[in-house]
Simulated scan of single mutants.
Amino acid sequence: MADRTPRGHRVPRGLLRDLAALDQALYEAVTVTSTPTLDSALRRLSAAADHSKLSFAVAAAMAARPGRPRRAALIGVAAIGVASTTANLLGKRLVRRPRPHRAEDSPFPGRHVPMPASASFPSGHTASAVAFAAAVGPALPAATVPLWLLACAVGYSRIHTGVHYPGDVIAGAVLGTGAAATVLAATRRHL
């Protein structure tokens, strides 16, 4: 048996089952690994990335400087808008993947953030953080490495705090990259 992709290609169900098992195994490996030093920092980072507050704060600091930093901030904010809209209004509604199950006897409940009510796939936090980094980088190369490190940390924090599977984060990163590419292409046409 096989499922069909949007282009009509067949995807063996065994492959989908294996990918789901790998996703679950990676999530569980993170949930049972003791990292007391990281727990509170990643919980705070995950919360700071709610509604892209962290990226908007960086954009505000960049926009305070005229020229390239201001243009880069505007492009980054536009990419967040595209990524967030796509993730939340399309991705989560189409896929409707349930959030990870948190066991009552979770070994590290102090690392958890409140479980969102929305679907798990894709990670909107990751999509927005990656979109911002990918859009700002070409316009302001000095910001590339720090913003990508921050985006990766935000993505991992969503797994670490128990609200996303690794596959959700990977999908969010792909979506964020696409959103940034779309915004960059549109701004190049207009500039």
Rank of each mutant, 00 (worst) to 15 (best):
A143V: 03
F108W: 06
V82A: 02
R158P: 01
P69H: 14
G124Y: 01
S120F: 01
H112Y: 11
H112P: 07
A131G: 04
P107M: 15
M62W: 00
A131C: 06
S118M: 08
Y165F: 14
A83R: 03
L150N: 09
P141L: 09
A72K: 04
P98N: 00
A135T: 01
D105N: 15
A143R: 11
H164Y: 12
P98V: 00
I75R: 15
G124L: 02
R68M: 04
A79N: 07
C152T: 12
F121R: 03
V136C: 07
A153Q: 08
S84D: 14
A72C: 06
L94N: 03
V95E: 06
C152K: 12
K92M: 06
S157Q: 09
K92F: 05
A173E: 05
V130R: 15
V163K: 03
G124E: 03
G172F: 00
T86E: 08
A78C: 10
G76Y: 02
S106E: 15
V145N: 04
P166F: 10
S157W: 10
S157N: 09
G162V: 07
S84M: 08
A171E: 05
A87R: 12
T126S: 14
L94P: 00
T85G: 06
V154D: 09
T126A: 12
D105F: 07
P107K: 13
M115S: 14
A59T: 08
R99I: 10
R158Q: 10
A131V: 00
R93D: 07
D168Y: 07
P122D: 01
F108I: 13
A142R: 12
G137A: 15
G137S: 15
G137C: 13
T161D: 14
T161I: 09
H101R: 15
M115I: 05
A60M: 04
L149T: 13
V58N: 05
R102K: 09
G124K: 03
A171W: 11
T161K: 09
A153T: 09
A179C: 12
G137P: 02
G110I: 05
F132R: 06
L175N: 04
H164C: 10
S84Q: 12
L90V: 15
L149V: 15
A64Y: 00
P141C: 11
A135L: 05
A143Q: 10
R93L: 07
G76K: 04
V145H: 02
A180C: 08
T177S: 11
R70N: 03
A83P: 13
G155M: 11
A131W: 01
R111V: 14
G176I: 09
S128W: 04
V82Q: 02
